[in-house]
Simulated scan of single mutants.
Amino acid sequence: MDLLIKNLPFILQGIAMTLSLALATLFFSTLIAFVLGTLATLRFAWLRVAVKVYVELFRDIPLIVNIFFVFFVAPLFGLELSPFAAVTVGLSLWGSANGTEIVRAGFNAVPKHQWQSAAALGLKPYEVYLFIAGPQALRSILPPFVGLLTLLVQATSLGALVGVTEFFKVGQIIVERTTMMEGWNPAFTVYGAVLLIYFVICSTLSWFGRWLERRLKADRSRVAPGTPVVEQPVTQLP
């Protein structure tokens, strides 16, 4: 415990790097996912096929291979990426591929009559997505997206393999430094603390995802379909 307290600033720095990496990845994954997920619902077959190829490609490649490919191959094309940037790109490609499927499924969950009614009113396609389908699709999109964030937090530990000083890498450094300088191995204590903190972060996100899903279901069922609406009589003014 004294070892953890002594290295607390270093540990907090690693946790901050992990959260920064997860948030950066979530931002780019969300941006790409909403663009591609929307394109996957359009009527143009070639667009749907192109999105499908992207999704299957990056979902089927192991994350570690994806990160190594970006980190070691990008310099061959003149792109000198820092370890943080390389891991962000690698995770964002994987995260956006999974997020695209979530967004596509969310839009497909919107009842068909909503699309037909919006088209009958003469709304433009972007207006239908922004004001009609989008708000309804978010009910189905948000809970699994929180689950995706949990997976991205777990996947940030792969950044240690290319030199990102995130939380797992900090634990490795503390173990190696203590073993070399003090002559004893604190692996059980350090990695136990790493496991516990990862568990707290990810279980909190999982709990939030379940709470959000229950909340959205409750809002959706508050007014049941087919419930008759009683109109109040209008009082005539004298």
Rank of each mutant, 00 (worst) to 15 (best):
A97D: 10
D60H: 14
A105P: 02
A105N: 08
F84S: 06
N108C: 10
Y54K: 12
T100E: 13
N66V: 12
S117F: 00
T100W: 15
V53P: 00
F77E: 08
W115T: 00
A50K: 05
G78F: 07
T100Y: 07
G106P: 03
H113T: 05
S82W: 09
V89D: 03
A85P: 04
F58R: 10
L121I: 04
G78W: 13
V128N: 02
N108I: 08
N98D: 09
P111C: 00
G78N: 13
A97H: 01
S117G: 12
V73Q: 03
P83Y: 05
A50S: 12
P111G: 00
A74V: 06
H113N: 09
L63H: 00
V87Q: 04
P83L: 13
A85H: 06
V87C: 14
I102C: 01
S117H: 03
A86N: 10
Y54R: 08
L76W: 13
A119P: 08
F68L: 13
I102G: 03
A105Y: 00
A105S: 08
V89W: 04
K124I: 10
Y129A: 07
K52H: 09
L91Q: 06
V89N: 14
W94S: 11
V110P: 07
V89K: 10
N98W: 11
L91I: 14
F58M: 15
V73L: 08
A105L: 05
V53Y: 04
W94H: 11
D60W: 08
H113S: 04
R104K: 11
F58S: 15
R104C: 03
S82F: 13
L81D: 07
Y126I: 15
A97C: 05
V55Y: 02
V87Y: 10
G95R: 14
S92C: 05
G90C: 07
E127D: 12
K52A: 09
V73M: 07
V103K: 09
G90R: 10
E56W: 11
Y54H: 11
V55H: 03
S82E: 01
I102S: 00
K124M: 14
F72T: 01
V103N: 00
V110M: 01
E127G: 15
N98F: 12
F72D: 06
E56L: 12
I67C: 10
I64Q: 00
L76I: 03
E80Q: 15
V55N: 01
L76Q: 14
N108R: 10
Q114S: 00
L121M: 13
V51M: 07
G122Y: 02
A86S: 14
L63F: 01
V73C: 11
T88P: 05
W115F: 08
G78C: 13
Q116M: 00
K124V: 07
V73G: 02
V55G: 02
F69Y: 09
A109D: 13
A120M: 05
L121R: 06
Y54S: 09
A120K: 01
N66W: 01
N98I: 15
R104Q: 06
W94F: 15
E80F: 12
G106A: 15
L123E: 04
G99I: 06
P83K: 15
S92P: 06
A120W: 02
A86L: 13
G106I: 03
V53D: 02
T88F: 10
Y54P: 10
I67M: 09
L121D: 06
A97V: 03
K112N: 02
P62S: 04
G78Q: 14
